[in-house]
């Protein structure tokens, strides 16, 4: 496993030296950012089973915060980006505190309403966000005097960001903190009876999911060089959700693989412009039918079946 991981990272790192197509590199940029966003959704939705539709809001808030901090406040991109993460994290605590007092179903509704409200703010607070026209002309970040512009350098920026974020998230997913979250997801009453305070874990999960997603959204905005309310488009939310569900909720490796495949698949399917979305839909249907618990769930079920028959003997 570590060998495979190092190989994948090495191949990804040397890819731009071989592939010069900026189209392929920009697919890579998107994939890196989607991976981080999907994996952070996997913290709150996968580990705790709390479907947060506010994820799209944090993605957009991160984008707007970074852009406004750089363009209006004159902050450096490298300061603005982590600040955007922290800002979204603080917002997530403010929203999560009341929303997490409710049951799971109400939580979904409250996060959806929050996502819709942020879209409204982005569209209507014209003096801050310039409304539906968006903010064009986002300047390039500079890295030690080197301008980051174009697919090639953004490939490395987004790639490095994804590498660091995913490493941290991997440490998190394999920690005892994540185990306690899985426990809360399986039986909150049992966890409480054992001395766990579920609210603290839920707030932490919500914070982490907002923190990483916001930074990914910030990089996306600088890559696009323009930000408008379309960053709150439900397309993104649906893409992240599909990655988590197809990969298997709560599984790090599953969502990593599904995230990569689901980022690349729609592009590969471009050979047939008419059937592209039909094929994508068919692939999804196949998964929902035959592997409702995702990639990781399917593998786990096979393993359990084997274990059962072994133990019977």
């Amino acid at each position: 496993m570590p060998f495979l991981a190092v190989t994948v990272v090495a191949v990804a790192a040397f890819l731009p030296l071989v592939v010069t197509s900026s189209y392929i590199l920009s697919v890579g940029v998107t994939m890196f950012l989607y991976l981080v966003a999907a994996m952070s959704l996997n913290v709150i939705y996968g580990l705790l089973g709390l479907l947060s539709l506010a994820h799209i809001a944090f993605w957009g808030i991160g984008g707007y915060f970074t852009v406004i901090a750089v363009m209006d406040l004159g902050l450096s991109f490298w300061v603005a980006l982590p600040l955007a993460g922290l800002f979204a994290g603080v917002v997530s605590i403010a929203v999560g505190f009341p929303a997490l007092r409710l049951n799971r179903h109400s939580f979904v509704v409250v996060t959806l309403i929050f996502a819709l409200l942020t879209t409204l703010v982005a569209r209507d607070w014209v003096s801050l966000t310039r409304g539906p026209m968006g903010i064009p002309g986002i300047p390039s970040p500079y890295f030690f005097g080197h301008e980051i512009a174009g697919a090639y350098s953004f490939y490395y920026l987004a790639g490095a960001f994804a590498l660091v974020s995913l490493l941290l998230l991997y440490l998190f997913f394999t920690s005892r903190i994540a185990d306690t979250m899985r426990a809360i997801n399986q039986s909150e009453d049992l966890a409480r009876s054992q001395g766990v305070n579920p609210t603290a874990y839920k707030l932490l999960a919500f914070f982490l999911s907002a923190f990483f997603t916001a930074m990914a959204g910030g990089i996306l905005a600088f890559n696009q060089r323009v930000i408008d309310p379309l960053i709150f488009d439900f397309f993104f939310m649906q893409a992240f959700l599909i990655m988590v569900i197809v990969g298997g909720r709560g599984s790090f490796v599953g969502v990593l693989v599904a995230g990569a495949v689901m980022s690349i698949l729609p592009e590969v399917l471009r050979f047939s412009v008419d059937l592209r979305m039909v094929l994508y839909g068919l692939a999804l249907l196949a998964f929902v039918t035959w592997a409702p618990n995702g990639l990781a769930g399917w593998i786990r079920e096979r393993r359990e079946e084997r274990l059962r028959s072994e133990l019977r003997q």
């Binding site: 399986q186 039986s187 009453d189 049992l190 409480r192 009876s193 054992q194 001395g195 579920p198």
Partner: peptide, 23 residues
């Protein structure tokens, strides 16, 4: 709260089995 009572040293089990089935 239940979690504080548990920490104080009183643990309960449930009539219907509560365990972490996926673990």
């Amino acid at each position: 709260t239940p979690q504080k009572i548990a920490k104080a040293g009183l643990i309960r089990t449930f009539q219907t089995v509560h365990i972490y089935e996926a673990m």
